[in-house]
Design a protein around this nucleic acid. Structure first.
Length: 288
DNA sequence: CCGTTCCTGGAT
DNA sequence: ATCCAGGAACGG
């Protein structure tokens, strides 16, 4: 559930060795509603194409393809809430809510399954990749060299009245965080989810950036968080669940100070935080 | 710029 | 039977 950057990266990494070099035999569009970019026919015309790379950008998966007539195309996938991309080395009966199936020459198959049908697929020419909604306005990767506290501060400069939680979830401010890791980052940086970003000190912003990088890196290492039913393409669960400090821990003692974790709604999302470690007002604001 | 909408299964 | 979860597009 809720694939965020670490889960999407885990899916990418687990798919890469299977997918790269695999030649498509046929594509079955079982439910065209998940196709946002490209037509049903365009997907079916991928027969003969070969996957050449498995990339990730934020929560988007980018699968490069070379068609049989030499065109460069990209299959873009966003899992949203419940999307799954499953690799089967041999044919299997279609499970419920299967929407698209790639059949490969070697007998393997790749199935896109999504109970809630929020997930989206695009098939675009490589040079048209910017037409994928959200991808063109996506902020830098928090783990990349071109991300820094300066970039972060620049990206949040025009939305000073916004709440910290809302900005962490905004893919135009930083790519890849969702509800789980946003709460964990705020906890690690000791920032209240409802803090207005204009009140954040440079030190707060540094702590936030450091927390993003450290938490995402560790979550990737542990293959993501399987909080309900998230699995990677090989049906494996992630190991970060036990590392969660506040998410889904309402009423349980804060790992730092023992104060019971609170749960509130912020920008329409459940937000878990420690009311003692994460003060709503900055120290400077309280003195004034 | 915030609230609403999409969608289904699981919880109550 | 009703409510709730939530990423991102969309509308007021």
């Amino acid at each position: 559930m809720m694939p965020e950057l670490p889960e999407v990266e885990t899916i990418r990494a687990s798919l890469e060795p299977h997918l790269v070099g695999a030649e498509i035999k046929s594509v079955e569009v079982l439910n065209p509603v998940v196709i946002t970019g490209g037509s049903q026919e365009a997907f079916q015309e991928l027969a003969g194409a070969v996957f050449t790379a498995a990339r990730r950008r934020g929560k988007y998966l980018l699968f490069d393809l070379k068609t049989s007539d030499g065109q460069d195309k990209v299959l873009v996938a966003h899992m949203r809430m419940t999307g799954r991309l499953l690799w089967h080395s041999a044919k299997q009966p279609l499970e419920k809510h299967s929407h698209l199936r790639f059949n490969f020459q070697n007998g393997a198959e790749l199935v896109f399954v999504d109970v809630r049908r929020f997930g989206r697929l695009w098939l675009v020419a490589l040079e048209e990749i910017h037409t994928v909604s959200g991808l063109n306005t996506l902020a830098p990767e928090p783990m990349d060299e071109d991300f820094s506290v300066e970039v972060w501060e620049r990206n949040i400069a025009n939305r000073k009245k916004s709440l910290a939680k809302g900005v962490l979830l905004d893919q135009r401010a930083v790519a890849g965080l969702g509800n789980i890791y946003a709460d964990e980052v705020l906890f690690a940086a000791k920032v209240h989810p409802e803090r207005r970003v204009e009140t954040l000190s440079h030190r707060d912003n540094m702590n936030l950036c450091r927390a993003m990088q450290a938490i995402l890196q560790e979550a990737i290492r542990l293959r993501g968080t399987s909080f309900r039913d998230y699995v990677d393409s090989d049906n494996r669960r992630g190991g970060y669940l036990d590392m969660l400090q506040c998410f889904m821990r309402e009423g349980q003692p804060c790992p730092r100070c023992g104060t019971p974790i609170k749960r509130i709604k912020v920008v329409g999302r459940s937000s878990y935080y420690c009311p003692r470690c994460q003060r709503r007002k900055s120290k400077a604001a309280k003195k004034a």
